[in-house]
Design a protein around this nucleic acid. Structure first.
Lengths: 163, 163
DNA sequence: GTTAGTGCAAACCTTTTGCAGCTCT
DNA sequence: AGAGCTGCAAAAGGTTTGCACTAAC
């Protein structure tokens, strides 16, 4: 719950303003990964006077405090960043480049990787991010259909062609 | 060598212009990860008339053709993207957030992860990217020094305070 | 000789900054 | 009361687009 985050913030001497409460609720509450713009739009429903800049400033704050993680989701839909509250369980984000669905993948390979980087390189990890782009099972089928439609050349049988 | 890439491009009916040759050389030849701006600056040394836009267009082309991979390198230095010629061997990028050094990490965890995502989710992977941010071994030491300097409060006993 | 590619200027999108006024503690 | 935070306007950074000209095949 966002409750934990609130306490952490207070400890850091950060004021818990109305705007920040709204944004925290949204990031933590919505089941999906929101970007700054979506977040702004949603926040505006609760407080029509809230400003985009406040959204950016809050996200920066939460990011720096290690309370949220920033994702790119393979830039599948532009250059925005997406946000999620930092969870204890490391996971990869699997992004369908056709429908945009994002699946989370948990598993030992991620922990193994982390350990190996720490021991083999003597690296101190602060953030780790694994993103995978491709096609989800549904979209693989849909794409196969689409491609076969395109491949069917229009120069062939003009039976019921383009017009 | 960039030779392979050239052939692939020709196959795709893409013209191999002077500008593209220069950019290919640079991406493939420089031992580091270049962003569009660095690439532009370097290309300008070889062809002072080359335009930034051409750099962006070429990168997009190579990206779409699957010939180069785009990296974010944890946005350790802004929002640019970095590029590398796509290698057969999957690897993670380990970025030091203090000195900016980028290490490449090869290992089974990455292949395991890939296989698991494919089998467990039935996902068709086109691109995968693992980026890790933190401090390299040298910078861990440097940071420890920096922090202890800051922690030494000027108001306290200068003897061996904050202990 | 076509058609794809280039350069230039200007637009675009996301994010940041400067500053005056507001508000949380 | 005072530092911290907000909103507004404007700027910044990175990238894309429209269009006329140029060059690769």
């Amino acid at each position: 719950m966002a409750q934990d985050i609130r306490q952490l913030l207070q400890q850091q001497g950060v004021r818990l303003t109305r705007q920040r409460q709204i944004l925290l609720e949204l990031i933590d509450g919505s089941g999906r990964h929101l970007d700054a713009d979506s977040l702004y739009l949603l926040a505006k429903e609760k407080d029509p006077k809230i400003n985009r800049v406040t959204v950016y400033r809050t996200l920066k704050l939460l990011k720096q405090g290690g309370l949220v993680d920033e994702l790119d989701l393979m830039h599948f839909n532009g250059e925005q960043h997406y946000y999620e509250t930092r969870s204890k369980q490391e996971h990869a984000h699997i992004v369908c480049l056709r429908c945009g669905k994002v699946e989370e993948f948990f598993g030992e390979p991620l922990e193994r990787l982390r350990r190996q980087v720490e021991t083999k390189l003597g690296f101190q990890i602060l953030i780790a991010r694994t993103e995978v782009g491709g096609y989800c099972s549904e979209c693989q089928i849909a794409r196969a259909r689409e491609i076969s439609e395109v491949t069917r050349k229009p120069t062939a049988k003009p039976n019921h062609a383009s017009g």
